[in-house]
């Protein structure tokens, strides 16, 4: 698959749906029931974003009506403020092509890489990967949240073109084992793309002291960080890498010039 178009967007304020009193009441009850077994309580002032609203805007930006999509994968880690919604099913309706759609989650920063891998395995003509994160939790929590609400959408197409992708994922990697695997992953993905710009997340760079020359993505956006940079990159070849220290996933992907188009 080749990347043909990407969009990125930051969102401010709260989701529009939170202006609806009925919705606020429903989700307040939902979150109260969710956290009760864990000894926490809901917050009184509900805030945050809806991935449906965020992704809808990204879809409109990245997918023209004349380019129908066959597969849509929504990747997230922290949840949004519409917890019972089948957001991917909703996105299937607003995305040209009414694509098969689902979400990949519970995998920390590895989810977008898994989404990219799945897109490759489906072998469809055109696929959209949407990576989202929002920065509010509607209950008492000590968990770190993203600094900003952000989303990235990437439209991939099968066949010869300007960019192609490959993915490497390493589960259960302790921090001490990162450097060796990271060297291997970058070497494998760099084959054929010697000039690729390397973009590493802050969490990966922190545990890889002898990392190669790279662009280091600032901390604070654990899901969208490297993808945000990719979506804004002008280079022909970009290699992104991320490490989820809690879940111990080390992941790399290269989005690079397709040799058939270079020739």
């Amino acid at each position: 698959m080749r990347l043909v178009r990407a969009g990125r967007r930051a969102f401010t304020g709260n989701a529009d749906v939170l202006a609806d009193d009925d919705h606020r009441a429903q989700v307040t009850d939902y979150f109260a029931d969710l956290v009760r077994p864990f000894g926490a309580g809901p917050v009184t002032d509900l805030s945050g974003q809806s991935y449906g609203e965020m992704a809808k805007a990204l879809v409109a930006e990245v997918v023209p009506a004349a380019e129908p999509v066959d597969l849509l994968v929504l990747a997230f880690s922290i949840h949004d403020v519409w917890p019972g919604r089948a957001t991917a099913t909703y996105l299937s309706h607003v995305c040209p092509g009414t694509p098969m759609s689902f979400a990949v989650c519970d995998q920390g920063s590895a989810s977008p890489f898994t989404g990219l891998r799945v897109i490759g395995d489906y072998g469809v003509r055109r696929a959209l990967l949407v990576v989202v994160e929002q920065g509010a939790l509607p209950y008492e929590s000590a968990a770190a949240t993203p600094l900003a609400h952000r989303g990235v959408a990437m439209l991939y197409e099968e066949g010869a073109g300007t960019r192609a992708t490959e993915v490497r994922q390493y589960p259960d990697v302790v921090p001490e084992a990162v450097p060796e695997l990271a060297r291997r992953g970058v070497a494998e993905l760099s084959t054929g793309h010697p000039g690729a710009r390397v973009v590493l997340s802050d969490s990966l760079a922190a545990v890889w002291p002898d990392h190669p020359d790279h662009t280091r993505v600032p901390a604070g956006q654990p899901m969208t960080g490297v993808w945000w940079h990719l979506a804004g990159a002008s280079e022909d070849a970009v290699l992104v890498g991320d490490y989820d220290r809690d879940l111990r996933y080390l992941c790399f992907a290269v989005v690079a010039a397709d040799q058939s188009s270079v020739d």
Binding site: F38, A88, T89, S101, C105, T114, L137
Partner: peptide, 29 residues
Amino acid sequence: VPYPHNPLHDVCRQLGLGHALAFTVTQQS
């Protein structure tokens, strides 16, 4: 579950499946 609890990965580690790529697919009800 509240974020960032992760029962799926808890189970994988408990049962000797920590080496696997584990994730959830959802939003098709």
